[in-house]
Amino acid sequence: METYLQITSIWGVYLTAFVFFAGMGVRIYQWATTPRSPVPFGMFPKPATRGGRIAAMLRDTFVAPHSAQIEPRMWTFAMLFHLAALAAFVGHLRLVQEYPVLPKLLGTEGMNSFAAWAGGIAGTLMMVAVLYWIGRRTFGAFKNLSVPEDYLLLGLLLGVIVMGNHMRFFGDVHAAEYRAWFQSLLLFRPHIPEEIMTSNVGWSLGTHMLFVDLFLMYFPFSKLVHAVGAFATNLTRSE
């Protein structure tokens, strides 16, 4: 157990952080150093001002209203996934630093209960969305469009979510212990608290982190770079 956690949840995290940031850096460098076509390829109507262009880009990137119009179901699941992922990300910030106000207001028990509900809902929504995507890709009319990359990413994502949900729904370890582990990583004095190793979710954390490591290490080399690229391409829409 200890070795497994050391690999996936300590050294794997450092490796992942390096690969992720370096990979994204290289990707953005490649984009930045490829000459832009001088031809204005925007479509009409175009916003008249620079501020209008940026507002339209942000709207198109975060809300994608045109996609919603043409395929509401796909858009709904995509929005659910991304919003739930954002909520999960915000929830995971507790591992860096406990929230300033909420725990005082709710008390320890109340905060744990709130986190259980919020995290449980976010995790469930993400899982539903990923299962929908897998189904849509596997059984849709355009299934032959899919390549192994698509399934690999969905598989990794499902692994991350299922193991996260397992910790959330079946674990008896709360944020403080996970925070002790994660802060130790940030301070470069990594250790896994005893409470986690002796709990019923040590394996879950290890496997959650295994999927997280693989997912984030692969991220810069996959289509997921749309997380950054979509801002640029949606700005091109109005150039």
Partner: peptide, 22 residues
């Protein structure tokens, strides 16, 4: 013929196929 725009398009297309109805 590669341009920044096309490179970004090729890198980010998620094959979501929302374009199928368009």
């Amino acid at each position: 013929r590669m341009t920044r725009q096309v490179k970004q398009y090729l890198d980010i297309c998620a094959r979501c196929a929302i374009c199928k109805d368009a």
